[in-house]
């Protein structure tokens, strides 16, 4: 199933990275494994501080891991970083532009750094300007660009040399809906035409909408990986929300819980206090829901709402990490150190 057995185009094996020394050392990656099949659109999902940016910077050869194997398009990135750079496009999270240059001049500079012959360089720039809808402002200075324009320009510069692998670090964070849709469309087209795309995100919806493969990364390790459908299917069962009344109370909810728990095919019945004492449960197949309805009416209990849904990526995340992505985000929000992060990024 995984890319028809073809060997992965991006391969990280037991990659470890530590920042700093001694007691203040921060373990960013603790044995990260990742295998991205060729031609996939691969999402790296995890909260801030999980190690996503560090992994991508290692792939882009900006950072050397403390140990581990890094291969891109069959090339050992640690032994031959220059060949990796030729094959890989990297769109960083913090876009550093030269405010004084125009977008076109910046692209020309990049093209020269990739040693494109001049006619090819200029032709390629013109193509990308049209593709990303940059005609209106590409000859203005970068200092005047909005976040969406900067991100598009950066995407273009990552694509100048037609890389086999495109790596993007949080490509749509903070963008308006229109720019986000534009970038999504290009990423899908790229994948459809044979480029392997790896992007990091802490938006579940983004990974759900875009990725055909994903890995959940937490605390410097990959804790779940596969196709979204497979991961969801592996959870098994459907999610059901049951309310006997619009606003129930605890004793009633507990009574219903008791009743429902007895039904064959029902698992994990949880009273959700935050939602007016509704019940969240997992059912093994559709028939169980019909059985539930019958039992409830036999017990003369009303049914205000009975909603059934397939497992979502949220559920996958919850199952893998034991908490929701939003909780994980909140947990790390206070512990970040912008100064240390800037230092890590600086040469």
């Amino acid at each position: 199933m995984q890319g028809a057995g073809a060997s992965p185009v991006i391969e990280l094996q037991d990659v470890r990275k530590r920042y700093g020394k001694g007691e203040r050392a921060v373990e960013a990656l603790r044995g990260l494994d990742l295998a991205v099949p060729p031609g996939s659109l691969y999402g790296l999902l995890g909260p801030n501080g999980a190690g996503k940016t560090t992994s991508l910077r290692i792939l882009a050869t900006l950072l050397a891991p403390c140990s581990g194997v890094v291969r891109v398009a069959g090339v050992d990135a640690l032994a031959d970083p220059r060949s990796v750079r030729e094959r890989l496009g990297y769109v960083a999270q913090e876009v550093a532009l030269d405010k004084i240059l125009t977008g076109r001049e910046l692209l020309a500079l990049q093209g020269d750094l990739y040693h494109l012959p001049r006619p090819q360089r200029d032709g390629r720039i013109a193509e990308l300007i049209a593709l990303l809808g940059m005609e209106g402002w590409i000859d203005r200075r970068c200092g005047t660009y909005s976040g969406g324009m900067r991100r598009r320009l950066d995407l273009a510069s990552g694509l100048l040399h037609r890389p086999q692998v495109l790596v993007l670090d949080e490509p749509t964070v903070g963008l308006d809906i229109e720019s986000r849709a534009a970038i999504w469309q290009v990423l899908r087209q790229l994948r459809d035409q044979g480029t392997t795309v790896l992007l990091s995100s802490h938006y579940l919806e983004e990974v759900d909408a875009l990725a055909d493969h994903l890995a959940i990364i937490e605390d410097g390790r990959v804790i779940a990986a596969g196709r979204p459908q497979e991961l969801k299917a592996a959870l098994g069962g459907d999610r059901v929300t049951l309310r006997v009344r619009e606003f129930s109370d605890e004793p009633e909810a507990l009574r219903v819980q008791q009743l429902v728990q007895g039904c064959p095919g029902v698992r994990q019945v949880v009273v959700n206090r935050a939602q007016g004492f509704s019940l969240n449960l997992v059912v093994e197949h559709d028939g169980v829901v019909e059985q539930l309805r019958r039992q409830l009416s036999e017990a003369s209990l009303p049914v205000f709402a009975l909603a059934q849904s397939r497992p979502s990526l949220d559920d996958v995340y919850l199952q893998a990490t034991g908490r929701t992505l939003m909780d994980a985000e909140l947990a790390v929000a206070g512990s970040r150190d912008p100064k240390a992060e800037r230092k890590q990024a600086m040469r």
Binding site: L116, A130, G133, Q164, Q193, G194
Partner: peptide, 24 residues
């Protein structure tokens, strides 16, 4: 956003024409 020509977004795995280090 114009639609992509077939080759616009496809990767180019073929190495660039070999050039001297000095030219690069």
């Amino acid at each position: 956003m114009t639609s992509a020509a077939p080759t616009l977004l496809s990767p180019d795995a073929s190495p660039l024409p070999a050039r001297s280090a000095a030219a690069d």
